[in-house]
Simulated assay, not measured.
Amino acid sequence: MGSFTELEAWKQSRKIRNIVSDLVKKFPVDEKFRLADQIIRSSRSIGNNLAEGHGRFHYQDNIRFCIVARGSLTETLDHLIIALDEKIITEEILQSFHPEYESCLKLINGYIQYLKSKKMGE
């Protein structure tokens, strides 16, 4: 496999990162160093961990980073739920994020399964 940028899971994580980046620009100023900072960090962590895992020598290392990426994806969704509860975003915005979340989750899980099957063939 070539670069991590060819991974479908990474491409979807990039899309999520860009959605979050655009969304937090509309957050209230008093949330800049609280919720906005946290959601930016968690959304960036998805792709960061996929990239770092891809650069590892062993399949198990890559799998471990993919699991962390999956956790960051779920954390990002939780931050959006908090934004909804705090009335920073609407239910419609949250619902529009769900397909992106589900797509990324499926891609990461599929990639983990692929890596596990490759590991078994080592």
Score class of each variant (00 low, 15 high):
Phe4Pro: 03
Arg64Ser: 08
Glu52His: 11
Pro99Gly: 13
Lys118Cys: 10
Gln12Val: 07
Leu94Met: 04
Asn18Leu: 15
His54Ser: 02
Lys15Arg: 14
Met1Tyr: 02
Ile67Val: 05
Val24Gln: 07
Met120Ile: 14
Leu107Val: 01
Ile19Glu: 11
Asp22Pro: 03
Tyr114Pro: 00
Ala69Thr: 07
Asn48Thr: 10
Leu7Tyr: 12
Pro99Tyr: 13
Tyr101Gln: 11
Thr74Pro: 03
His54Ile: 02
Arg17His: 15
Ile88Thr: 01
Tyr101Trp: 14
Phe4Asn: 07
Thr76His: 11
Gln60Ala: 10
Ala36Tyr: 04
Lys106His: 07
Gly110Thr: 03
Leu23Ala: 08
Tyr59Trp: 03
Arg41Pro: 12
Leu94Arg: 02
Leu94Gln: 02
Leu73Ser: 06
Gln95Phe: 04
Lys119Glu: 10
Ser3Trp: 03
Thr74Asn: 14
Val29Gln: 14
Glu52Pro: 06
Ile88Phe: 10
Ile67Asn: 07
Arg17Phe: 15
Tyr101Ser: 08
Arg64Asp: 06
Leu35Phe: 01
Glu86Phe: 13
Glu8Met: 02
Asn48Gly: 14
Leu94Lys: 05
Cys104Tyr: 11
Thr74Ser: 15
Glu91Phe: 04
Gly71Gln: 15
Leu77Ser: 06
His54Lys: 03
Leu115Ser: 00
Leu77Thr: 05
Glu100Arg: 05
Lys26Pro: 01
Tyr59Gly: 03
Ala69Val: 07
Gln113Trp: 00
Leu7Glu: 09
Leu7Arg: 07
Leu105Arg: 13
Asn109Tyr: 01
Arg34Ser: 15
Ile82Asp: 10
Glu8Arg: 00
Glu122Ala: 11
Glu75Ala: 13
Thr74Leu: 13
Asp78Gly: 08
Leu107Met: 06
Asp37Leu: 08
Val20Met: 12
Val29Leu: 15
Ile108His: 04
Pro28Val: 02
Thr90Val: 13
Ile82Glu: 09
Glu100Gly: 00
Thr76Cys: 14
Asn48Pro: 09
Tyr59Lys: 07
Ile40Asn: 08
Asn18Asp: 13
Glu100Thr: 13
Glu92Phe: 08
Asp78Phe: 11
Glu31Trp: 08
Phe57Trp: 14
Cys104Asp: 11
Phe33Met: 12
Asn18Arg: 15
Glu91Pro: 01
Ile67Phe: 02
Asn18Cys: 10
Lys25Arg: 13
Ala51Gln: 11
Asp78Cys: 09
Ala36Cys: 13
Lys11Glu: 04
Leu105Trp: 01
Ile67Gly: 02
Arg56Pro: 13
Tyr111Asp: 00
Ile112Phe: 10
Asn49Asp: 09
Ser3Phe: 04
Arg14Val: 14
Ile89Lys: 07
Leu107Ser: 02
Ile46Glu: 05
Thr90Trp: 05
His54Leu: 00
Gly53Met: 05
Ile46Met: 07
Lys25Ala: 09
Phe97Glu: 02
Lys15Trp: 04
Phe4Ile: 13
Phe57Ser: 14
Met1Ala: 03
Lys15Gly: 06
Ser45Gly: 15
Ala9Ser: 12
Leu77Gln: 08
Asp30Lys: 09
Asn109Ile: 10
Tyr101Glu: 14
Ala9Phe: 04
Ile93Phe: 03
